[in-house]
Amino acid sequence: MDVVLIRHPAVNVDAGICYGNSDVPLAAGPETSAEALAVRLATLQVPAPRVVLTSPLTRCATVAGALANNFGCTASSDDSLKEMDFGTWELQRWDDIDRALIDAWAADFEGARVHGGESVAQFVARVRTWFDVFEQTRELSPAYVVTHAGVMRVIAALTLGLTVDVCLQWALEAGAVVWLRRNDTTMKWAIVRWNA
């Protein structure tokens, strides 16, 4: 089973802004972004998708739709693939957020909800529920999933038996490709490509 996670391309948001669950625009058009991704995927010899799954946020869904058109398959969105909800921190400059609140969040990384949005534990549970269903649906393989860095890291942690904080240390650039493959005999997952 192959799943190819694709982080949305660069967004038209100033650097240093928290935009997790907020619907922000892409920096370039979705067709241009999808064409560039299709070329990169071909260079990486990633198999063509049977389906493109996506976060419903514009920065993902528009690219997913264009990719699906390129590959002649369907695109399907799911709220479970949205980035983490940072509550009152959404669209705020990270530097403007009270340092004591950020420290409180870091002190209880899994459970804190000082921003009023999702805790990391809630976010992980949401993505895990989606992934558990996805993993049982072999006919979707290979699938492309156009989503967000947080979702990609959670899926990597789940498949590789790691904690999310470990995967937070791994770089994921805008437009990054992460290709995961499951051996359907051993049911073990492995990374084929990371941040490609």
Rank of each mutant, 00 (worst) to 15 (best):
S119K: 09
A112R: 06
S80C: 11
V24H: 10
G72H: 02
V3C: 08
T58Y: 12
P56K: 05
A27F: 09
V177G: 01
Q169D: 12
D85N: 13
L41F: 08
A157K: 13
S119G: 01
I191A: 13
G20Y: 10
V24W: 12
L160G: 01
G116N: 08
P49T: 08
G16D: 07
V13K: 11
L41V: 12
Q136H: 13
F109C: 00
T186R: 08
P9V: 09
W130N: 03
A157H: 12
A171Y: 00
A66K: 08
W179T: 10
A42H: 14
A171S: 14
A190R: 15
H148A: 07
A15Y: 12
Q169A: 15
L5F: 07
D2Q: 13
A174V: 03
A10L: 10
S77I: 04
L57W: 02
V177I: 15
R138P: 03
L44F: 13
E135G: 04
I97G: 02
D184T: 15
V120T: 14
P9W: 06
A38N: 08
A149T: 01
T185N: 10
R182E: 14
T43Q: 15
A42N: 15
F109I: 11
R153S: 06
L160N: 04
T88H: 13
V4F: 10
W89F: 06
T88P: 00
A112E: 00
G65K: 11
A28G: 00
A27I: 01
L81R: 06
P25W: 11
R181P: 01
F131A: 03
V52S: 13
S77V: 10
